[in-house]
Design a protein around this nucleic acid. Structure first.
Length: 456
DNA sequence: TCTGGGGTCCTAGGACCC
DNA sequence: TCTGGGGTCCTAGGACCC
């Protein structure tokens, strides 16, 4: 599309006002909400280390913990090396008792952050992930957000876009040089802090992409306003990785083309970008030029549900793999039922050492809510990997339909009946439909509605 | 950085249909 | 009947995000 952009067109519709609200190290903030002694302390929230195991990862590190080189997605073993676990209560600074990680793993690589200033006896506090609690805090935050905007797009548990065009304006406040939009954003931030008690960073801009980058620009507790007409000047000096959608792979490829900043990207040849990256190249080009016409739309229904689990060590025990897959299947189907979702495609994932991700999936002729079938199909798909070692397995259902969704109740009934009644257009082969016919489709529609739990 | 868990979107080849 | 073209669905993999 960018190739068709009229010459001379600058940035995008300047009239909109989009807020991006990003909760700062949200899990850690939640822990501090119920354990205020943790405020100001290095705090790591993660999974996998609780039982002395070391194969988990850091979910969130507080900014104090990041000073020691601890970061999200880092293996917990490495976090413990850089920041030993505190033994006593927060504030007491007792010595790091019972550090489960051996100390032999001293990596010789130079980490500018780790223990840079002789803080050799610094310790951190580790807490296991408690999603249920974080979700309850997030629900309170969302209440505030929905109160502050007509359209809210919740992107994840700790992040949302708000279209506040109708609530404020780009015009300057009578008494100063700040815009009304900035005042409004400050108001949103303060309401979250006062009513929920967790910090947020907010970006304000005329489009989603720029607002997102703005909220990232001054964390934690930041407020960055990018006025219409100044988007380019804001973006130009930033690293290309600041642009949403540019990850390590794309950044490397861009660097090899001589593109390192957002400004470089904006000045690049769009045809070359398209040739190298397809439609995504054109999109990134527009973003870097401050063009993003996506409307803020409310969060839609999920497209897939999945559950996966890593083994402490890669296993070639087929029994163990099958048991795990069966348990994950049960889990994922329970979740689907809770949400009132039926699914038409069942898939598995098998991660084979060193890190080969394999996926297999099979589609049925119609949507079902059938835990036994999911287990059967998942195990059938898993059979292909018999004897192979796996470090992780997963189960996924997709092609979801919702009983109370855009489809009418009647459609839901018809869809379910298809599967049950030997639908003449069935496109699956005999093997899979043989088991598919054991469906309990008669009550799909109603059962899903009864069990629908909007809280989850 | 040797790798946890839950998602989204895109691409590309093949099957199948008209 | 040796070979056109378009459209859709399915599957596997990859990049990215939080």
């Amino acid at each position: 599309m960018s190739g068709e952009t009229l010459p001379g067109v600058v940035e995008s519709d300047p009239s909109r006002i989009v807020l991006h609200v990003d909760m700062d190290c949200f899990y850690a903030s939640c822990e501090r909400l119920r354990e205020p002694e943790l405020r100001g302390e290095p705090l790591v929230v993660g999974m996998g280390y609780e039982h002395g195991e070391t194969f988990g990862a850091v979910a969130t590190a507080s900014y104090e913990a990041r000073e020691f080189g601890v970061d999200s997605a880092q293996p917990i073993s490495q976090a413990l090396e850089r920041l030993p676990r505190a033994g006593g209560a927060p504030g007491s600074h007792s010595d790091a008792a019972g550090d489960p990680s051996g100390t032999d793993g001293k990596d010789g690589t130079s980490d500018p952050n780790a223990d840079a200033d002789g803080d050799a006896d610094a310790v951190g506090y580790y807490r296991p992930v408690d999603l249920e609690f974080y979700r309850s805090v997030a629900a309170s935050v969302k209440e505030v957000l929905h109160d502050c905007a007509d359209v809210v797009r919740e992107v994840s548990i700790d992040e949302a876009y708000l279209d506040v065009t109708d609530r404020t304006a780009w015009q300057r406040a009578p008494d100063g040089d700040r815009t009304l939009a900035e005042g409004y954003a400050r108001h949103v931030k303060q309401r979250i802090a006062r009513e929920v008690g967790v910090p947020a960073s907010v970006g304000v801009a005329p489009n989603m992409s720029a607002a997102k980058i703005a909220s990232d620009h001054d964390k934690p507790d930041g407020l960055v306003v990018v006025e219409p007409g100044r988007v380019r000047e804001f973006l130009d000096p930033l690293s290309v990785e600041a642009v949403h959608g540019v990850g390590p792979v794309t950044a490397d490829r861009l660097a090899s083309m001589g593109v390192e900043t957002a400004g470089d990207l904006a000045a690049a040849n769009p045809d070359e970008l398209r040739a190298a990256f397809g439609s995504r190249g054109a999109e990134l080009y527009d973003r870097a030029r401050g063009i993003d016409d996506r409307e803020v739309t409310p969060t839609g229904r999920p497209k897939s549900l999945s559950r996966e689990s890593a083994f402490a060590e890669a296993t070639d025990d087929d029994g163990e793999k099958r048991e795990t897959v069966a348990a994950l299947a049960a889990d994922v189907t329970a979740r689907a039922r809770n949400r009132g979702a039926t699914y038409r495609t069942i898939g598995i994932k098998v991660v084979v050492p060193p890190y080969d991700v394999n996926t297999r999936e099979r589609s049925l002729s119609g949507p079902v809510d059938d835990p036994e079938l999911v287990e059967d199909v998942a195990l059938e798909l898993l059979a292909e990997f018999e004897g192979e070692p796996a470090r992780k397995v997963g189960v996924r259902v997709s092609n979801l339909s919702f009983a109370d969704g855009e489809q009418s109740q009647l459609d839901g009934w018809e869809g379910a009946t298809d599967v049950d009644g030997g639908d003449p257009t069935a496109d699956t082969d005999g093997r899979s439909t043989a088991s598919a016919s054991v469906s309990q489709a008669e009550h799909d529609g109603q059962a899903s509605l009864d069990q629908f739990d909007p809280g989850e």
